[in-house]
Amino acid sequence: MGTAGTGEKKESILHLGQHEGRDTMIQGVKWTVRDGFSISLWFDNWIGPGPLRNLIAGPLTQEEFTLSVSNLRETNGPYTSCPFRYLTILLDSSAAVPAQGQDSWAWAHSASGDFTSKSAYDIAEKIMGNPRPVAQCNWVWKTQAHYRTQHFLWLASQDRLATRDLLHHRHIVSENNCTRCPNSTETTLHILRDCDAAK
């Protein structure tokens, strides 16, 4: 999509969002083992919190480099050709899976394998670092205030008001300073208490 009169190309918000979410998806998905043909033994996430290669130090031979999970299932029993002895202990979890059907993707951070927004958000917060503190403010819902007031108080207590600081943290705006006080960061506390416009 071009910008009027300049001929410059600008990325769409959807494309930027996909780019930002790539690391979250990579960390969030894992393989579900069936026949094992599609899964690299060392470089795909299929057994735990990441690829097995991250747990093994030292070089791999060319033969080991190209192993798939299916290569370890032999008629003599599961994983008899395993190049490292202790890997058989790690791989026992998939030995019980019948070798039928095609391997498939699943969401690693839920018991059912289904994607959840909450778990994806938690992963994204860890990737970005400095997760925002969350207060336990369930008392807000027990007040005699109007629902909209309760909702506003709850957002404020969770630091989820659409302040420039939060929008900057989510890469929506480029700066986090207050539009009325340029030398101050526009946080929830600043809007409600410290800003000159709030006094």
Rank of each mutant, 00 (worst) to 15 (best):
T88Q: 05
L192P: 11
T88A: 00
R164G: 04
R85M: 02
I56K: 14
T24A: 08
R160N: 06
S12R: 12
Q144W: 06
K9M: 14
N138A: 14
I123N: 13
A162E: 01
W46P: 03
Q150L: 07
K9E: 15
R53H: 09
H19F: 06
W42K: 08
G77I: 01
K118P: 14
C195Q: 03
R160V: 02
H19K: 12
P59F: 11
W107L: 02
F65Y: 06
L16R: 11
K142W: 15
E64M: 11
A156K: 10
I47Y: 12
Q62H: 07
G2N: 14
I26C: 08
G58D: 08
A95P: 00
R22Q: 04
Q158I: 02
W154N: 05
L91Q: 04
N45D: 06
G2C: 13
C137Y: 12
P131G: 08
D194S: 11
T32P: 01
R53S: 09
A106R: 11
V97C: 07
F37G: 03
L72D: 00
L55E: 13
H169D: 14
C178F: 12
P83H: 03
Y79F: 06
M128S: 14
L192S: 05
W107T: 09
F152R: 08
V134C: 12
D92Y: 10
N183W: 02
T187V: 04
C82G: 04
G48A: 07
K126G: 10
